[in-house]
Amino acid sequence: MGKVIVVTSGKGGVGKTTSTAALGAALAQRNEKVVVVDFDVGLRNLDLVMGAERRVVYDMVNVIQGDAKLPQALIRDKRLETLFLLPASQTRDKDHLTAEGVERIINELKKYFDWIICDSPAGIERGATLAMRHADMAVVVTNPEVSSVRDSDRIIGLLDAKTLKAERGERMEKHLLLTRYDANRAERGDMLKVDDVLEILSIPLIGIIPESMDVLKASNVGAPVTLADARSAPAMAYFDAARRLAGETLPITIPGDKRGFLGKIFGRKAA
């Protein structure tokens, strides 16, 4: 049975869709069967980030309403055999995403895939709670910035209350993914430190993704950053995070911390 992961944040624009695509492609490169599911009805973007926007025929609402079978709606990635996308509906209303429909789809996906990664919409409304409902594990995407941390705290509360796992009295496994981390700002003391965010949110860290142009470039060409440029700093951070998701223990490095003597002298100018 596949594992269901929700990528969530509360706050918008922190990197959920970027992270869903990057983690999905990283896991698929380990030869595991992965489907990334877009829950952002009306504002779908995962198709674009994955470079599959022109191949969308059917979406999740079509499957829920019986207009298409699940395999017809799944889009196989052109580069990775084991990576699939289930798009959200762009035209329909969110109300068409019913709780029963979502449950049916997730249960079916669990039979065929090792990982089902759900890209949550921003906010704490129905779309977000539906995306987290069936999760076995949550990746809480947070930027080192006050409003993002506050919203993540809200989302952690919901994960512990509104999910099937929580309702059954089981513990929801939650992981913090700190994204858009800027080493220079951290050094100047004008960005919340990793330790500060960890202490405040009290959930284990699964990775720190640096702020990087490589993320933008990857989305321009329509490829997850772990496919577009596997050697770039954000891609390597996502690869490590994916390995931790899969259960490996690796030491976490804070981006920019490894700079040596010359790096410290010239780092500022280079950035």
Partner: peptide
């Protein structure tokens, strides 16, 4: 003075 410590303090109280 750097601003991050103040951010941390405000968050702790608020949350």
């Amino acid at each position: 003075k750097t601003s991050a410590p103040l951010a941390r303090e405000r968050l702790q109280v608020l949350l």
